[in-house]
Amino acid sequence: MKIEVTVNGEHQSYDVEPRMLLVHFLRDVVGLTGTHVGCETSLCGACSVMLNGDAVKSCTVLAVQANGAEITTIEGLAQNGELHPIQEGFWECHGLQCGFCTPGMIIAAHQLLERNPKPSEADIRRGIEGNLCRCTGYQHIVDAVQYASKKMTT
């Protein structure tokens, strides 16, 4: 099936099998491997991307469902060589260890801050509940989101 998508601002068209998952499309067809696959059950959140402005788990979306959509992946967050404040927060606050969950975690944080620019710690912890991290115990991730919130609202 033919689909047209805009990924990180670039308009592209592809021919894909209906059963291809969006995450595999992004990784294997578009070639953006920053988005990861961590489970098959829509629970770990490693595959999170922005689809028409909503954070979604791209392992639970068919590529054909994204026809006509605008997609932002982790690769699309930094602009003109400058890190996005959330990326900066993760770096400054040691919000990652192995880094595998990080792209999805950053996307989840991105959605959270769009909807709630000054979240409480509890808001942050609930806001990232769809993203599992096995390394950090989450505290430095919370710090990272708070860092970004502060930077983005002042």
Partner: peptide, 9 residues
């Protein structure tokens, strides 16, 4: 329900 990404979709 679920989490933010699940609720979005």
């Amino acid at each position: 329900i679920g989490d933010a990404q699940v609720r979005n979709r």
